[in-house]
Amino acid sequence: MVISYDKLWKLLIDKKMNKTDLKEQAAITYNILARLGKRQPVSMESLYKICKCLHCNIGDIMEFEID
């Protein structure tokens, strides 16, 4: 099973935000952004911060893909 954050990247485009904006507004680190870009797991705390910043639910930013 693979984690896909494609929904997050699409949401950022819709909100006219870039990754740096997300990093600053959600108070996450560059390492978290790198893990997201590599489709690696991140902590629930980080996902919560992203959801809170974007006013969305976790299903709006990620999904599991069966390989």
Rank of each mutant, 00 (worst) to 15 (best):
E45S: 10
I32N: 00
D21F: 10
R35P: 02
Y30V: 06
I3W: 07
E63D: 07
L11A: 05
G37L: 00
L12S: 05
S46N: 10
C51L: 05
P41Y: 02
V2P: 03
G37T: 03
E63A: 00
K38H: 13
Y30H: 12
G37Y: 02
I50Q: 04
W9R: 11
L8A: 04
V42C: 08
D6N: 13
W9S: 09
G37D: 06
N57Q: 06
L36K: 01
L47C: 07
M17D: 02
M44R: 10
Y48R: 13
N18A: 05
P41N: 12
W9T: 05
E45R: 14
D21C: 09
I66V: 15
D6K: 13
I28E: 00
M44F: 14
G59I: 11
V42M: 03
L33G: 01
P41S: 05
N31F: 02
I58C: 06
H55G: 13
Y30Q: 11
T29L: 09
G59L: 11
L36Q: 01
L22P: 04
A34H: 13
K23H: 08
M17E: 01
N31E: 12
I28P: 02
Q25D: 12
M1P: 05
I66S: 15
C51E: 01
L36W: 00
P41L: 06
Y5W: 06
E24V: 06
M62R: 13
D6I: 10
